[in-house]
Design a protein around this nucleic acid. Structure first.
Length: 351
DNA sequence: GATTCGTGGGA
DNA sequence: TTCCCAAGAAT
């Protein structure tokens, strides 16, 4: 058997049953692919079900508020995906009458759709022979062919896409793409794959050379930056303050507690000497109720050192206009980062 | 083209 | 504890 026949035979025997498989609805495929970007199937699956239930069609998604979309996305991370998803839904409805583009090139023009997702939609929905290259495909092909080009470079990406596009079955492009990703995910795993059970072991260059654990090659990752967040849980009667993040930074468009960010860890005394603290509270006498232990929230490239400070202020106190005052019991209707959600649910609920 | 965008699970 | 990394894309 040749490569494709071997792969498709393996897939037929070993494929998982997943809700977006066998769908040829471009909206459902697009939704699943965006949710699954840099996300494990098990983590993304419940989000896929919820999105499809709340937004059965692209028209439903297009007419929703961005805040509603972000709330449904809460906890999944990489929130630009949700904003781009919503933006693209509106484009598809307004410019294309709700019909998705059906070529790789036109799909690539949409926000949130890169080379992988364009290939996925064009092959799964329209059976066009565009090869998907995700992390699973990088790993499998780098080992099978013994390729040491770093996969996280432009050169590497082009090289592997070129190879995948020469391999892809023109008769079964959708099944081929599903199969090669499934194979990388289930059989050609990152750690200690069971090469004795592999249908490609006889031809695998990395196995022959005993370098399975060295492939794929990746360039070094950038350093982790430390940041120091002092979050203010400000109570004013039955209300509390929130703030919406708008900068091009982590958690853009999500809500959070009012924040003082400093460039180092400081004591409560020093915090109250900071310019931002004075700007917020110079005209009022606030009462500091309590202060949490430092919580270290780890992201891919940042470590957030967070402290939550509980304050009580008077009805007459005035604060910046970008503060949003909400009834305390409504906090769960706002999309917030996990760090904030954990505080609101666990710490706050204990009172 | 190197960096930056979250979160959670497993070794 | 720490590190890796998972159906990538935008800048």
């Amino acid at each position: 058997m040749d490569f494709t026949a071997t792969l498709l035979a393996w897939y037929d025997e070993n494929k998982r049953s997943l809700p977006w498989r066998n769908s040829r609805n471009p909206y459902e495929i697009w939704l699943s692919e965006v949710i699954l970007q840099q996300t494990r199937v098990e983590q993304g699956l419940p989000y896929y079900e919820r999105f499809l239930k709340n937004f059965p069609t692209v028209f439903d998604l297009a007419k929703a508020d961005e805040d509603t979309v972000l709330k449904l996305w809460q906890g999944l991370g990489y929130y630009s995906r949700a904003r781009n998803l919503h933006h693209t839904a509106k484009i598809v409805v307004q410019d294309f009458g709700g019909i998705f583009p059906n070529t790789y090139e036109d799909l690539l023009k949409l926000k949130g759709i890169g080379s992988y997702t364009a290939a996925a939609i064009s092959s799964f929905a329209y059976h066009h022979p565009n090869a998907v290259v995700d992390g699973n495909v990088f790993r499998f092909l780098s080992r099978y062919f013994g390729i040491y080009t770093p996969i996280n470079t432009g050169i590497g990406k082009k090289e592997f896409e070129s190879i995948a596009n020469t391999l892809i079955s023109h008769k079964f492009p959708a099944d081929f793409n599903q199969a090669i990703m499934e194979f990388g995910s289930i059989q050609c795993k990152p750690n200690r794959p069971d090469c004795g059970a592999c249908v490609f072991v006889a031809e695998c260059i990395a196995y022959r050379d005993n370098v399975i654990h060295l492939l794929p090659v990746k360039g070094k990752k950038s350093a982790i930056k430390d940041r120091y967040f002092y979050y203010l849980y400000i109570e004013k009667g039955k209300e509390m303050a929130l703030h919406k993040r708008t900068d091009n930074d982590i958690w853009k468009s999500l809500y959070e507690l009012p924040l003082i960010e400093l460039d180092s860890a400081v004591s409560m005394e020093d915090l109250q000497e900071s310019d931002e603290w004075k700007r917020l509270f110079h005209r009022t006498k606030i009462v500091v109720q309590s202060c949490s232990e430092k919580i270290i929230h780890k992201l891919s490239h940042q470590a957030i050192h967070a402290v939550f400070i509980h304050l009580v202020v008077k009805k007459s106190d005035v604060f910046p206009s970008d503060f949003i005052w909400i009834k305390k019991e409504y906090h769960h209707t706002f999309a917030v980062p996990r760090l904030i959600e954990n505080f609101l649910i666990h710490r706050l609920a204990k009172r």
